[in-house]
Nucleic acid binder design. Structure first.
Lengths: 248, 248
DNA sequence: TGCAGTTAGACTTATAATGAGTCTATTAAA
DNA sequence: TTTAATAGACTCATTATAAGTCTAACTGCA
């Protein structure tokens, strides 16, 4: 079967930048090892071609393609993918003119086991601090995704979906530090995340304290009351977290 | 001539959302009237197909296509186009599966005369407050562009490129009000835009005051020292403007 | 000419937000 | 028992912000 057009057309692919947070609250990235050329055996972002057609229903949406490719190549299903940017420079793919729409997501890595499949010989969570060389322009895509992630955590409580259901403020802070890449003053962080003048959607678990396996007192355990947060947002509340790099 | 592929491919287009500011400091939008079906004679965003090829040099970049289409359909050349979002829902174009990468820009409308050409029967600056019905999903694209513009003017001094070279603080404020869609306390705006503790890249024109054709005292005239601003940015300065809606 | 209305620019005042710490109690490890 | 680490409650100084007042300078109108 073949498809003929009056004018040349590009292929359109998606790439998925899926950040993970492991149980040590370190940042990871979901990668696959390519089964085929080009860049055979090279690590790359999961992704692939968008299914399209010129007749109704015209194939799948870009977003649907992103979810599908992610599932096929890594076995992972995420709740939410956000469009990041579209990369379409001539020459970015040796196979021909390929335009790629990048999506990104953020999950707990332990909840999502990476299993290679389809065009992926392997799939794995890799430490963000020690990424291998990647195929195509994927390093560029990732650096743009990280930038976006860093700006997003300042005005959306996405960090809260990445911790275990019950967590301490120190854990939350460590997560922020891992994503932002710098240390935060712990008192100021606590003040911003647990303001005293308004109802807070980060609620203490009454009776529980941390099962302490480190120095220091046992910490209060909290949970994220998502419903309360969404109600507040509906009423015009907007989350903001302003913690800059510690100076010293 | 025809082009045959093993798998179906989408067409890729660009759309340009070009905001303009007129001499009354009102927001405008650059639109074209379509020469051909679908949506013949309907107003739409300027845009069109990206030229591609599978052999090197693989055609033009997405950005280049945006500049080219804008020039062909409206005669307008802009300095800077920023990628906004990629719209690829099946069904968004009756001609087939068409994926469109939207770009946006911001210019002084009087410096850019709109002249219809190519696929555009007409091209014109339209008041943003009274937009006509538009083709395809262009209303959706525009509302996303406006949202982006509103968030951008808070941390980038883009407003300053939109005024005449020499301007008063009131004019600058009126521009901000036009884009944000609400009134700003004039004293607070002045304090934020002309801070007293640091060198300022908005500099008074020593001898000049406004040639007053309205009530009130003649206002000091300023100019935007772009070089000084860029130096400050290079040294880590970041512009911020926090003026919320007046309460009263 | 004189008054009314408008506005730039300089202030003020109260409140809130932020950076950078201190201090204490509580724990694990040495 | 001592030492080092850390949660949590504070403090303090500084800066940022919202909202307004006051005055002088102008235009337009009577």
């Amino acid at each position: 079967m073949s498809f003929t057009y009056e004018f040349p057309r590009p292929s359109v692919t998606i790439d998925a930048v899926v950040f993970g947070v492991n149980q040590e609250l370190e940042l990871e990235l979901l990668l696959i090892k390519r089964r085929d050329d080009p860049f055979k055996d090279c690590w790359a972002l999961p992704g692939g071609f968008v299914n399209v057609a010129d007749t109704v229903p015209q194939g799948e949406s870009l977003e649907a393609a992103a979810y599908r490719e992610l599932r096929e190549e890594t076995g992972i299903k995420v709740d939410y993918l956000e469009q990041l940017y579209t990369f379409g420079e001539p020459g970015r793919d040796p196979r021909g003119r390929i335009i790629s729409v990048a999506y990104f997501a953020l999950v707990r890595s332990k909840d999502h086991t990476a299993i290679g499949g389809d065009d992926a010989k392997e799939a794995a969570w890799m430490s963000f601090k020690a990424l291998p060389k990647l195929a195509f322009d994927h390093h560029k895509i990732i650096s743009m995704a990280l930038e976006r992630l860093r700006s997003k955590i300042r005005y959306q409580p996405i960090g809260l979906n990445l911790l275990p259901e019950k967590f301490t403020i120190s854990q939350l802070r460590k997560l922020y530090e891992a994503i932002l890449g710098y240390k935060i003053n712990h008192g100021n962080f606590r003040r911003q995340i647990l303001p005293k003048n308004r109802p807070n959607f980060i609620k203490p678990v009454r009776t529980l304290r941390e099962k302490s396996n480190r120095t220091g007192p046992p910490a209060q355990i909290y949970f994220f009351d998502k419903l309360l947060y969404e109600n507040a947002v509906a009423k015009g509340f907007d989350f903001k977290l302003n913690c800059r790099k510690i100076s010293q």
